[in-house]
Design a protein around this nucleic acid. Structure first.
Lengths: 222, 222, 222, 222
DNA sequence: AATGAATGAGCTTTCATTCAT
DNA sequence: AATGAATGAAAGCTCATTCAT
């Protein structure tokens, strides 16, 4: 049976296993990610695994929750640095792409979650959507969101756009070194998405949401 | 070794296996969809499977290609019935949701493909995107697509919106019998998506793409 | 059930299967030599196989008997061309090596027979031994075999020497093109064994058997 | 993955599996010696097998190497107890037959190795041959080997004689209880081969090798 | 005479999990 | 807290053989 670690040393062991599990799940898929492999990579015995996690399924769910927390924190951090509502949204979007670029595990693990742990996947999407909805409601209050737009529907649309663009231009391009081409150096500046794609995407998003649609936004790069 | 069936009887057997495999993969996931289960459901011997497919992986890829073909055909059929360009796009979108509602297998199988057969998944998305791009280019020619919108980016955004909305409002709602609640009777009228959601989504899409953005479209139901 | 072929065409089919089976058994071993592979190589349907052989085991035994017949014929033909008794023996030996060089299948198939069809293997060795025994008895009558030598024991010793030398210097050397190095052109002259090894072997054999032992034989090359 | 046992308990388990595998391979042949059968006979779970051996092929090779080591040790032990060179050779020969009589597995497994693990089989023969060559070279130095005899060729001839005689008079006779008939009691005295056959064989060998050939040796029994 | 579709037992191998130490 | 030996069910896949055509 699993339990919370009682000592600091135990805490470190548990964290190491969780970390390694994330990588292994992402690289090999849930089913090929055997406990043997995970424990070997974490340099612990197989039995040790079961001190901290009740089952393979359980680590997987933990991994999903962990990733969800991390990506949401990155998005919140980025958007709360902005003052304008849509500017905040744009910043959050960019943060999402950056996270994806830095943690391709996110995608691959979420894909698996559809089968392995559907309820946790649902939570993942719902929590991100909630963040978008909150942001859009705030924008609405400030008159920055077109009246005819439903924040709920818009939130899921934004997520879909982000996920698909992330897959297409971040993940698939990654081996080609797209990020490097951007010439950006600090993580804050690295957009994840190629800048022209990011701009085109934001233009589309802003046309959809902004009350003053049709007015092209300035071509800022995220 | 697998081979193409040489007799009509063989052709029927192969088709039955492919069909059953689609269901089983969708219901249980690639890993739990054992050959034993597939062949039992298809009511053939296990060896028979290997007359027509070289491996489990191979049927899976075949299933993905088959679904891709079917969904694209449904979309093309629906949109080519319309005359206006964006009307065609709207019709294709609706067809996608209907297909999703009728074949929830599509989603679940594509999610798995990310891990099981990434190159085939890529083909799947690229082929659908190509369809959108072609439609949007045609719309551009007729002045129905805003100048500042990149058809490529828009295509992937549309796919993302469709996929996310389909997951959220078609798949997740399905056990609740949402489709039934709609009161629609013929498959043509069944929108897949609840009509108010479909409308809200189309409003957002049309704001994003149409040159006359900001002008709310009338609330047609797909 | 299998039956003897009734037509000439059937005879050809059966012969083709037997021939192909010999090759496939030699190349892949009894167990990896599947009926599918054999029939495919023979370009007949799987069912056709069972028109001529009752089972896989049966073809194998037939193959063993066939090879035994062929190697004995080669040996008899070679030795009956000689007049001296030990000269005949030497010629038979050489024929054995030549056959081995030309049909490496012989070895590989006999090795398998130990497990797959032990009684047929026994027959194989006993028949060859019988040939040697007959030759040695004739030599004894002509005073060409030392009194203290038991023909039965000598026969099996000769077979052992031939088999081991064939394995060591014919089979194992074969990829190195040892036969080619000999510069011999007609099959009759090709010794199978490198000539210096063949001579050394014959010297040893003749010392063992000849009544005038210790008298080195002239270094003829087979 | 297989690994060396890390505890004493593991060492015992591995040894038991290796031992049982030798018997099962000899009795049923490589192919019919299923892992299920081996592990059942060793009274361990199937998975346990794979803790110590990577595959069926791997145990088989290990078994071959193990047998090779044991038979060579038996031969060396027997021949190093003798002082005369050819006496040593004779003692080694006898040891070989005794080993064969006590471990019929040797033959049956080596036959299989031709197909299953040819390179290991080759090592097996080469190592034994090396032993003979060393012995014969030493005999040559002491003037106990005829000048015209090539030690290399003689070594392989001796192996061939030993193998064939062992097959014919040890293995094939065994079910008839030949060894028992010999009336020998201690393993040292049990010749493996019926004494008259052993003597006849040694006579032949000594004629072939000894510089004073033609001089019948006294009919000592091994 | 010839075929190829169909079968299911049986193979090797993997893996999450338990437990004694 | 940590380990690694042990397990056995279950997986994917092959194959000799049968049989309807």
């Amino acid at each position: 049976m699993s339990a919370l670690p009682r000592t600091e040393r135990g805490g470190r062991t548990r964290a190491r296993i969780l970390d390694v599990a994330t990588q292994v799940f992402a690289e090999r898929g849930y089913h090929d990610a055997s406990i043997v492999r995970i424990t070997a990579a974490a340099e612990v015995g197989q039995g040790t695994f079961y001190l901290y996690f009740a089952s393979k399924q359980e680590v997987f769910e933990e991994v999903v929750r962990d990733l969800n927390q991390r990506v949401r924190r990155a998005m919140v951090a980025a958007s709360s640095a902005e003052t304008g509502r849509l500017a905040a949204e744009r910043a959050g979007f960019a943060a999402y792409f950056r996270f994806t670029a830095a943690n391709p595990a996110l995608y691959r693990i979420m894909r698996q979650a559809e089968i392995v742990a559907p309820h946790v996947l649902r939570e993942h999407y719902e929590r991100i959507a909630d963040g978008y909805v909150a942001g859009l409601r705030a924008a609405r209050v400030h008159g920055e969101l077109a009246e005819e737009i439903d924040p709920e529907v818009a939130a899921w649309a934004l997520m879909g756009i982000g996920e698909m663009a992330g897959m297409r231009w971040v993940l698939w391009e990654q081996p080609d070194g797209a990020a490097a081409r951007n010439g950006a150096t600090t993580p804050e500046e690295r957009p994840g998405l190629p800048p022209e794609i990011f701009d085109a995407t934001m233009r589309l998003v802003e046309r959809a949401l902004s009350p003053t649609a049709g007015t092209p936004t300035e071509g800022r790069t995220a």
